[in-house]
């Protein structure tokens, strides 16, 4: 009985071994290779998409008229400056009030809750528990500079003058907006006092927004090189056109005096 069994085993041993080899090849060779191929394929796909993005970006960059956009940026910088230069703003508002015949009695500045990058970080850690709305308000305050101005004028003409002042204020190249107005007539009825809160936008360009000189591995600015170029929409063009027609009251060069000396006005 055993003899035929051994004979049968001898007959099929090679075939059985071959089947075993095939069975082992699948998990040991084919599956890892498939996994490698999948990874590489993904890598190649990502690389291809990135290359496509880069090519599109080059195409976009070639279409840009560098000189023209530099001039546009120079003009927009007058409307939305990157820094909170106060002197030209104060002088500009004073001139504007003077032109409309109003007298500035008092001026206070609120440079915004968050004024510097370090302050942003500190605010972020402190205000973790605050609501989203509060965070949004803080972010908005960062990009705003608020002045409170008290103006005074005789009753007869005061209302017309403040109206003219507001009309001119709304058409300044350095964007100025009124957040609130309070008007009060004196008990004798001779003068009006106006309390105005004027805000102006300030926008600093962060390295992510403005620069592409970053590596693709940077966590704060993910792959800025392949980031598509932002396009100027029709609305943007309208804003540019609007800004170009505004009057520049604050483009005043205020001479700087030396600091750290006994008499800076010498």
């Amino acid at each position: 009985m055993n003899k035929p069994k051994i004979s049968l085993l001898r007959t099929y041993i090679v075939s059985a071994l071959a089947v075993l080899v095939i069975i082992l090849i699948v998990p040991l060779v084919i599956m890892p290779q498939l996994s490698k191929i999948r990874e590489k394929n993904l890598q190649v796909k990502e690389g291809r998409e990135r290359l496509e993005a880069l090519k599109q970006k080059i195409e976009g960059l070639n279409k840009i008229d560098g000189e023209d956009e530099s001039l546009q940026l120079f003009e927009v910088e007058k409307s939305v400056p990157s820094d909170k230069k106060l002197a030209p703003l104060i002088v500009g508002i004073r001139n504007l009030a003077g032109q409309t015949g109003l007298r500035i009695v008092e001026m206070n500045l609120k440079p915004g809750k968050v004024a510097t990058a370090s302050a942003v970080a500190s605010t972020k850690t402190k205000d973790k528990t605050k609501s989203t709305q509060a965070t949004a308000t803080t972010a908005e305050e960062k990009d705003r500079l608020t002045l409170t101005v008290k103006l005074e004028e005789n009753s007869d003409t005061a209302l017309d003058k403040i109206k003219n002042f507001l009309t001119a204020l709304e058409k300044t190249k350095r964007l100025l907006g009124v957040s609130s107005i309070g008007a009060l007539r004196s008990s004798e009825g001779k003068t009006y006092t106006f309390d105005l809160a004027i805000s102006t936008p300030v926008k600093q360009i962060t390295s992510c927004e403005g620069s592409q000189a970053k590596t693709s591995n940077s966590s704060s600015c993910p792959d800025i090189v392949a980031k598509p170029l932002p396009s100027l929409s029709g609305d943007n063009e309208n804003v540019l056109k609007y800004l170009s027609q505004l009057e520049d009251y604050t483009g005043i060069v205020v001479p700087l005096v030396p600091t750290g000396v006994e008499n800076p006005f010498q």
């Binding site: 940026l73 927009v76 360009i205 927004e209 403005g210 396009s231 100027l232 804003v239």
Partner: peptide
């Protein structure tokens, strides 16, 4: 320039 311009115009 383009990025700065778009950011500023959006803000405006």
């Amino acid at each position: 320039t383009r990025r700065a311009l778009v950011v500023k115009v959006d803000e405006a």
